[in-house]
C-alpha cells in the first residue's frame, strides 16, 4: 500500500483557553507562550495509515503546506513511522482557504504519483472546517469517505467505518480513495527512540510553487474563494458561585440546596 497523509502545523489547540489571543495587528490567533504542534487530526490520520502499514507493508509519505515550518514539529509523522516528508513551504502557499490550500496539495499529490489512499484529518484544529479533504477528492476525482474510525483493506477496495450521530456506517470504497480520519481510530502512537533518531537524520524535501507547477493566482491568499472578513473572541461575562464547606461532602450538600433554591432540580 502506498499512502499519503496531509498534516498541518497549528497553534496548540489543547493549551489552556486563557492563553488564546488574537493579535490585532495581523488579525491572527496565537497561543501566548505555547509552541506550535502538528494538527491533532493529522496525527490521527497518520496513525490510521501506520496501522495499515503495520498490517500490509508499504510506504507512507507525509505532506505539509505552510511557511517557516518548524522542523522539530513537522517531523513528527516521520518519528511516528512515516517514510518521507514533503513540505510545500513558501510565503505564497499560506493563508489560503480550503480550496486554494487543496489546490496546492493536489498538485503535490500528482507529482508524488501513485498511491492507494490519501489521508486527511476530519478537521484541522484551527479552521474547524473539514473541507480540505473533500476539496482534494473533488480536484483529484477520488471517491471520498469522511469521519472514518476504522479501515480494513480488501482486494482493490477498503471497507471503512464512518461515524454518525447515533453509531456508524460501514462503507465499501474503491481504491485509490481519500479518507478523512476521526479520533475514534485510536490514540496516535508515541514516537519510538528509533523513530526519533531516524527522523533526526532525515531531511524533508521542500517544494516551491514552481516545483509543482501551480499558477500564483490559484494558491494561498490569491486563490481564496472564501474570505475571512473578521476574527474575534466572543465575550464571556460568566461568574461562578463556588459552594464551600468544611468537607467536600458538606460543599456537595450546599450545592444541592442551592440548585433546589435556583429551581434547577
Amino acid at each position: 500500500m502506498d499512502m499519503i497523509v496531509c498534516v498541518k502545523q497549528v497553534i496548540d489547540p489543547e493549551a489552556p483557553p486563557a492563553s488564546f489571543k488574537i493579535d490585532a495587528a495581523s488579525n491572527k490567533a496565537v497561543m501566548a507562550g505555547v509552541p506550535p504542534v502538528i494538527d491533532p487530526y493529522g496525527e490521527f490520520a497518520t496513525e490510521a495509515a501506520l496501522k495499515i502499514k503495520d498490517a500490509k507493508g508499504g510506504k507512507l509519505t507525509a505532506l505539509c503546506l505552510g511557511n517557516a515550518l518548524l522542523r522539530e514539529v513537522v517531523k513528527k509523522p516521520l518519528s511516528m513511522g512515516a517514510d518521507d516528508l514533503i513540505l510545500l513551504e513558501d510565503p505564497a502557499f499560506v493563508d489560503g482557504d480550503a480550496w486554494s490550500t487543496a489546490f496546492a496539495l493536489a498538485a503535490a499529490v500528482k507529482k508524488i504519483g501513485k498511491f492507494d489512499i490519501l489521508f486527511c484529518g476530519r478537521e484541522a484544529s484551527d479552521t474547524n472546517a473539514g473541507e480540505v479533504g473533500p476539496a482534494l477528492a473533488e480536484i483529484l476525482g477520488l471517491p471520498c469517505v469522511t469521519l472514518v474510525k476504522k479501515i480494513e483493506i480488501l482486494d482493490g477496495k477498503a471497507k471503512v467505518e464512518r461515524m454518525t450521530a447515533d453509531g456508524y456506517e460501514v462503507i465499501e470504497v474503491t481504491l485509490p480513495c481519500l479518507l478523512t480520519v476521526s479520533n475514534e481510530i485510536g490514540e496516535p502512537r508515541y514516537p519510538t527512540i528509533k523513530g526519533i533518531m531516524a527522523a533526526k537524520r532525515k531531511e524533508p524535501v521542500v517544494w516551491k510553487p514552481a516545483d509543482i507547477a501551480v499558477e500564483a493566482g490559484k494558491i494561498g491568499v490569491a486563490g481564496q474563494r472564501a474570505k475571512m472578513t473578521k476574527l474575534f473572541q466572543p465575550v464571556k461575562e460568566g461568574k461562578c458561585e463556588i459552594l464551600t464547606g468544611d468537607t467536600p461532602e458538606e460543599a456537595a450538600v450546599k450545592l444541592a440546596l442551592r440548585l433546589r433554591e435556583a429551581k434547577l432540580i
Binding site: P17, G238, E241, I242, E249, A251, A252, V253, A256, L257
Partner: peptide
C-alpha cells in the same frame, strides 16, 4: 477553565462530592 464558564461550582474530589450530592438530591 470550567469555573470561568459555570454558574455554580464545587472545588473538590468528585469521588467525595458526587456521592454526597446524589444522596442530598435524592432526598430533595
Amino acid at each position: 477553565n470550567i469555573f470561568r464558564e459555570a454558574r455554580f461550582g464545587v472545588v473538590g474530589d468528585w469521588k467525595k462530592v458526587v456521592p454526597a450530592l446524589t444522596t442530598k438530591v435524592k432526598e430533595l
